[in-house]
Amino acid sequence: MRGLRPLRRELIATWGFVARNVHLTKRYWGWELVWFVYSLTSSLAVAYIGLGTERLSGPGVDGNYLTLYLLVGTLVWSYLSQIFYVISEMVAWERWEGTIEYTFMAPSSRLTHLVGTSLFAVVYGIARTLLILAAAALFFDLDLAGADLGAATLWLFVGSISFTGFGILAAVMPLLFPERGVQMTNVVAALLLLVSGVYYPVEVLPGWLQFLARASPATYVIRGLREAILEGRGLGDAARPLVLLFLGGLAMILFGTWVFSLAERYAKRTGRLKRSG
């Protein structure tokens, strides 16, 4: 039983991070509402491009297919970027609130801190994306009869792991650069948006950008989800890329946590932990 005590303590601390973020989300409900409306209208604006293209180009273009293609891209991106931002901005957020030293002084591991924040990000991201999807469904005649929703769910889950690792790695920047760190994470997110085929197939990109696209986990998640939803591609066909993405995601989390621990040490040596931007 004694050996279980540290584990129990870490589990309680993990829940502490989740519960804290739930409380914050409730208290900042006005912001959440604004952000939800913004995300929904952005998704709708992108999805309408599908119907608009059909109108402009004539019957040769399947507007419904294109709409669903864009809607999958924009919703998945909304979900993945949500995870990325919640994790990557956790340091900046705590610095702004003034609580960062209390969190870093507590006897709970940094992995617990990162896992707790990530858990909330995933659950929150799923709930938010489902709400946007439900609202978007009122605007379009979505045909999901041929979709393999089981495979789509698994792609989303595995994609969450990959983006958690990316988020942890990006969280290093606000830790090291109190004044400009958050802007740097925005640059990373923008680059991922450009190269990951969110709104178009990556094949339309120049060769060097396609090279970057291969390094982005979002490329595989979005492609996998489109194949599952638009073409009904099942798990049997997707097993290998899913396993590779899962292992890559785990490696990224471990690598990100290791880099974060080095950055934390540097911040504690130079006095950057508390300094606000």
Binding site: R9, A13, G16, A19, Y102, T103, A106, P107, S108
Partner: peptide, 13 residues
């Protein structure tokens, strides 16, 4: 809410 957060970091349910 602040104290619950702080306590959980120390493993207190």
């Amino acid at each position: 809410e602040n104290l619950l957060y702080g306590a959980r970091l120390y493993g207190i349910p």
